[in-house]
Design a protein around this nucleic acid. Structure first.
Length: 269
DNA sequence: CTGCAATTC
DNA sequence: GAATTGCAG
């Protein structure tokens, strides 16, 4: 063959080689996140996981979730927020990524684009700022729900900050949070991601002597009311969602704590 | 902290 | 599409 043909072939091989290597790197990066879901969780983490009404629980390094395919979002996200997790580091926000660990296919972030709704974190990025990996992992689409911006940056944000305050004060809390996926809901995007009409957050603390619980149920709208106005019993959220929140607790204790809507054990400062 | 959007390459 | 920059609650 001619020299010209040889050079052409070499050039093509080089281009394919570089492309292939970059593709290999990207595949490796994705594999890291997927494999992270297979890691064995700590005892405490497993212990407080709620039941799944959808049959699809996914474990990530920094949180676990139960994915509802019909609603294209998690019915709950659960994680332990330790005092040591709280840092002042200010990571750059990454791009949202489809969660490949969701076998039925997690929603694309494109559903949210120009929808008028925020990509609202369920496990807040601010709760996983102890490492770049943990922070980035919260930007998976299985960890977000459509939220009105005024709500997300308003009273919901206030609640999230209060959770961090409690995690610091009580040396760690276990957090379960999600939207109430029932009733008539609007949808956004081509995949019809449901817009919850209410959001909840359930906390349990076992590190402060005696076990205590608190639950919040908020309409999907901003509010200037104090946080304690939204305290409800865990039982009432279980009735709404069908989720059993702390099935591993001793029954008598579980029944007592979950029936209570008292917040006397939790400091609102 | 919680986010979106316009701009540039 | 990726990254930077600015803006808003």
């Amino acid at each position: 063959m001619s020299h010209k043909t040889k050079y052409t072939l070499v050039a093509i091989i080089l281009v394919l080689g570089v492309y292939g290597y970059e593709h290999f790197l990207k595949t490796e990066e994705k594999a890291e996140i997927v494999d992270a879901g297979k890691e064995v969780k700590t005892y405490t983490n497993e212990y407080f996981l709620p039941t799944s009404t959808t049959g699809q629980i996914v474990h990530h390094e920094g949180y676990s979730l139960s994915y509802s395919e019909p609603h294209e979002q998690a019915e709950w996200v659960a994680y332990e927020l330790k005092k040591s997790h709280l840092t002042n580091t200010n990571f750059k926000r990454p791009y949202f990524e489809i969660d490949n660990a969701v076998k039925t296919g997690a929603a694309s972030w494109r559903n949210y684009k120009n929808s008028g709704y925020d990509r609202g974190h369920l496990c807040p990025a601010g709760d996983r700022s102890y490492s770049q990996f943990a922070y980035d992992e919260t930007f998976l689409t299985s960890n977000i729900s459509p939220q009105e911006h005024a709500f997300n940056s308003g009273i919901w944000n206030t609640l999230e900050q209060k959770v961090r305050y409690w995690a610091s004060k009580y040396d760690g809390v276990f957090v379960v949070t999600g939207g109430v996926l029932s009733g008539n809901m609007k949808t956004i995007g081509t995949e019809k991601v449901a817009v919850p009409n209410q959001f909840y957050k359930v906390l349990i603390d076992t590190n402060s002597g005696h076990v205590k619980m608190i639950a919040f149920l908020m309409p999907h709208e901003n509010s200037n009311k104090p946080l304690y106005d939204f305290v409800v019993s865990v039982d009432s959220i279980e009735a709404l969602t069908g989720i059993d929140f702390f099935p591993e607790l001793e029954d008598a204790l579980e029944n007592k704590l979950e029936a209570s809507s008292s917040y006397k054990d939790w400091s609102f400062k």
